[in-house]
Amino acid sequence: MDSGTAPVPIRIGSRHCAVALTDMRITFSGQDRDGFTAVDRVDLSVADGEFVAIVGPTGCGKSTLLNATAGLIAPSAGSVAIFGEPLVGLNRRAGYLFQAEALFPWKTALENVAIGPEVAGATAEEARGRARDWLARVGLTAFAARYPHQLSGGQRKRVGLAQVLIRDPKILLMDEPFGPLDAQTRQIMGNLLLDLWNADRKAVLFVTHDLEEAIALADRVVIMGAGPAARIIGAWRVDLPRPRDISEVRLDPAFHALHREIWSALRDEVIKGYRQTEGAA
């Protein structure tokens, strides 16, 4: 096949490619004979320093993609390459912000953030010092001694963000991190994320089901179809200027144009996918 016709050029081995998923399929073995195929024929690359948002309906295998990139599950077919090297075992260069509660409930906010450096071999004092610094960056200095259950949902996400970023991962994986938060808190968290990301541009793979959030945050929006055996059905570049403010960028006419364009394509695909599953049933 002529490489020039590929819709998204994938350059395996390139130094600029932080993540490269090539023709990846993930099948979970279950009671069925063939198992359950979550995602199929996924080609996706994230350049170093690029912010990519994946949008798709619930249950389309977005989280599965992230888990494969994190090395928590191995692909059934195809490959995962991290900075040009095939991924074996856990992805040590990635930080993962989970959708569900992932903080250690028996540790205070400070201890939760300090655990990364501590595990990596820093002295307790040094780890605490750095953790204090990171808690300040996410605006939680006053809450260092609180346990997770004493924090609000938004505050817990801030602790989670600090816990991941303190390890300075080259790739940041985020699985609907602000999903359970209310609209205002989501915007505040989105701006906080963009501020932190602007200071030190990491490759980000951000999963969400909210198209507006995806456009507001990302450099590129990738749309996935409905599962099972979900595929990537399109990708759009977001050329809105940075630095952005989440609440202001939504008023930009370019934002609306892009939103309309993506949504019309997404709607067609969703309806098509829906008809297919209806026909199969």
Partner: peptide, 29 residues
């Protein structure tokens, strides 16, 4: 919690560190 466990592993914990920081406090509670 599988999420807490996955998080601990992503944060770079070895088996021994998992014991100390995750399994032990959970069992203790």
């Amino acid at each position: 919690s599988p999420t807490v466990l996955a998080n601990a592993r992503m944060l770079g914990m070895s088996e021994r560190q998992l014991m100390r920081h995750v399994y032990w406090p959970s069992a203790l509670s």
